[in-house]
């Protein structure tokens, strides 16, 4: 996975939807299903619920489909990129920390963007306490 990221030739943001699955490690059925689910959810970024759902998913997994990068990372990234670029308040950083963490990984390894989402790596946000 780490070696894959190192060697991957970043795709242009505009080409996100035509990204080929064959460029990525093979996914099993469950992983594919997760990918599709979040690709669809990410088309509704104007609904807070879908962002919360995405953030929750990325709390416990590094990529959209789990521990492997996939085409879904690129598709979802293209859909959330502009809204995520606007998260600068501590409140937003705290609420969407997992999306931002993942988006930063994607914009540095999988996708070339005109202007990267600025990440405040050491922002002083409270630890999430498990309910």
């Amino acid at each position: 996975m780490s070696d894959f990221l190192k060697q991957f030739k970043k795709l242009a943001l505009a080409d996100a939807n035509s990204a080929l699955e064959s460029l990525f490690p093979e996914l099993n059925k469950e992983e594919k299903a997760l990918g599709v689910q979040y690709e669809i959810a990410s088309t509704r970024v104007n609904e807070p619920e879908s962002l919360i759902q995405l953030n929750n998913a990325l709390r416990s997994q590094t990529f959209i489909t789990g521990n492997k990068p996939s085409k879904s990372d690129i598709v979802v990234f293209a859909n959330v990129f502009s809204v995520a670029s606007k998260w600068t308040s501590l409140e937003d950083l705290s609420a969407f920390r997992h999306i931002l963490r993942w988006a930063d990984l994607v914009q540095n390894t999988l996708v070339d963007v005109p202007e990267k989402i600025a990440i405040k790596y050491d922002a002083d946000i409270a630890r999430e306490i498990k309910e």
């Binding site: 070696d3 930063d104 990984l105 790596y121 946000i125």
Partner: peptide, 13 residues
């Protein structure tokens, strides 16, 4: 807290 916005301890690999 170091891993809030980082996927790896350092960088992207």
């Amino acid at each position: 807290s170091h891993l809030n916005f980082r996927s790896f301890i350092s960088g992207f690999q």
